[in-house]
């Protein structure tokens, strides 16, 4: 069942891996020219950005240093969101999409326990995302070496692990909503809303006291707060993400086991 799900994912995941890799090559590729003209992209130039936009981009400090550039263009906004989108689309194919298409009906009448079915699909999702993360990690590292970013592999690995955990978390949210309701649109809305608000809270919201406490329910807080590119693996934060994912996966399993399929 895991193998079958992975086969179903194959095309779209290969597409995402290629897309993300191309994105990184393009952005990291221009780093050498940025490094050579610090006055154009340096702190002073960045100061011209409106404050809120800068906040939204994670501060844009230190754009010309290797770690700062890598953080700003890769790990701050674009790559995590692209990876979340990839995880969400893949996770929707686990339950909600086949249920809406009607193909799930035959699958649940096979001699597989329903709990097992959801677990297998979760495992396939995790393995698929792991594969995409591994490919893009490799591309990031090779590109970082090639343009002289100057960040060691273990830091890149630490940051990339965060991308994987964040994507898997939102993928599992998708899976859980899909398993509980069978509705793809609802799962997509929940994930999109949570991801956007979560991101806003830890960026712009940091300076707004009224909503600052919301960062505790924002997955991005656990993703970015530890600054893995600078500080290395933030074990505690990542364990929170992984733990929340496990709880959601369990919720998905129990919810799907209890309900009517396809009505």
């Amino acid at each position: 069942m895991i193998a079958k799900s992975l086969r179903d994912y194959r095309r779209s995941l290969i597409g995402w891996a290629i897309g993300l890799s191309a994105f990184m090559m393009m952005y990291l590729g221009v780093y050498s020219s940025i490094k050579q003209s610090p006055d154009l992209y340096g702190a002073q130039a960045m100061a011209k950005f409106p404050g809120a936009l800068k906040d939204l981009m994670g501060g844009l400090q230190d754009f010309t240093s290797g770690a700062g550039y890598l953080q700003s263009v890769v790990y701050q906004l674009f790559v995590p969101f692209l990876f979340i989108a990839c995880a969400m689309l893949a996770a929707n194919r686990a339950i909600a999409q086949p249920e809406e298409a009607g193909t799930l009906e035959l699958i649940v009448t096979l001699p597989i326990d329903r709990k097992r079915l959801v677990l297998d699909r979760f495992a396939a999702l995790a393995l698929g995302l792991l594969a995409v993360a591994a490919v893009t990690l490799l591309v990031t590292w090779v590109m970082a070496e090639a343009v002289g970013i100057g960040v060691t592999f273990d830091r890149i690995l630490a940051a990339h692990t965060g991308v994987l955990l964040l994507g898997l978390f939102f993928g599992t949210v998708t899976l859980a909503v899909g398993a509980a309701t069978g509705r793809r649109a609802l799962a997509t809305t929940v994930v999109g809303g949570w991801a956007l608000l979560g991101y806003v809270v830890v960026t712009i919201g940091k300076s707004v006291e009224a909503i600052a406490w919301l960062k505790w329910v924002s997955p991005f807080h656990y993703y970015a707060e530890g600054q893995p590119l600078y500080q290395g693996l933030p074990v505690g934060d990542y364990l929170v993400l992984a733990g929340a994912t496990a709880v959601l996966a369990l919720t998905a399993v129990l919810a799907f086991d209890r309900r009517d399929v396809g009505v």
Binding site: G102, T103, E105, L106, T109, L110, I112
Partner: peptide, 21 residues
């Protein structure tokens, strides 16, 4: 019980088959 379902053959009324497979 999954084992009981293993002894049944089922044709759904609205059979959906899709994909490149």
């Amino acid at each position: 019980e999954a084992a009981v379902r293993g002894r049944i053959g089922y044709l759904p009324g609205e059979l959906a088959l899709e994909g490149r497979e």
